[in-house]
Amino acid sequence: MRKRSHRSRTALAVVAAAVLGIAGCDATGGNSPAPHGATAKAHPSPKPTPAWDRTPQSVAAVGDSITRGFDACSVLSDCPEVSWATGSDASVRSLAVRLLGRTGAAEHSWNYAVTGARMADLPGQMAQAATRKPELVTVMAGANDACRSSASAMTSVADFRTEFEEALETLRSALPKAQVYVSSVPDLKRLWSEGRGNALGKQIWKLGICPSMLADADASDSAATLRRTTVQDRVEAYNKILKDVCSRDERCRFDGGAVFDYRFGTDQLSHWDWFHPSKNGQARLAEIAYRKVTAKHG
């Protein structure tokens, strides 16, 4: 009996030593799980690749007369070389030139904007742009949806939304990872206010430039005031749509209303029609776009 008792005590001692040994490993940070309540040291997770690339290597532009440089070089004519988005003019330093350099812009930027285009035309322009597989697509459209023969002829808010969504879907179906920079529609009422003091400009306006806003430029009666306010309200509604639709696409950046808020002066307006951007105005648009595209956060 004493031998068996001795063997039992020896076995218990071995087990106890083993338990103490394990406990000691835990206390000194061994490989065993941490005691209850202790916080294990977490390994840092790799940073996710940001959805927005601030250095795209190719640019395609879609939109209307502003992106075509209309009336910036000569009366009632396109001048794409001064386009804020893809132009080559050294005095403008377009977005493409700022991003890619002059040689890179010449080889890897394309302008599919069309003077007179409305939002309904954007899906077709997007399809054309997609064939080039650009890393960045710029959008400036909506002014012609407000600039109609009358306020009642303006594109409805519902149609404008549907057409813009279709344009983005057209691009996404072909290029899921292409980035999109969306400019706000300019403040048309301010452009009227700045240009109406120029007699030549008002004569050009009579040829059919944005009649919903610019017709009867000197009229100040209640009907004219209501018409201009209606157009302005529609522009603001368009900008809300651009912001909303763009916000639901992680690779889309809206300018935050920067173009709408920009206070175009006489130096920034065409000296032929006093409504479209001059070369100076195109350069200001390029500055805004470059700042937004290269910002760390949208």
Rank of each mutant, 00 (worst) to 15 (best):
L12M: 14
I22T: 08
A23L: 10
C25K: 07
G29R: 15
A40L: 14
H43T: 14
P44H: 11
W52H: 06
A60Y: 04
I66W: 05
I66N: 02
R68N: 07
D71F: 00
A72M: 10
D78N: 08
S83H: 03
G87E: 05
D89M: 00
A90T: 00
S91H: 06
V92I: 11
H108L: 07
A113Y: 07
M126S: 07
A127G: 05
A130F: 07
P134E: 12
G142D: 05
S150V: 12
A151T: 15
M154Q: 07
T155R: 11
E163I: 11
E166N: 12
E169S: 14
T170C: 07
S173R: 13
P176T: 15
A178D: 13
V182W: 01
S193D: 11
G197K: 08
N198R: 14
G201V: 15
K202F: 02
I204Y: 12
K206D: 14
C210V: 02
A217M: 08
A223R: 07
A223E: 05
T225H: 09
R227T: 12
R228I: 01
V231W: 03
K240C: 03
L242T: 01
D249R: 10
R251L: 08
C252V: 03
D255P: 04
V259M: 01
V259L: 03
F260Y: 13
D261C: 07
D267L: 12
S270I: 01
P277E: 00
K279S: 12
K279H: 06
K279W: 03
N280I: 10
L285G: 00
Y290T: 08
K292H: 08
V293E: 00
K296F: 04
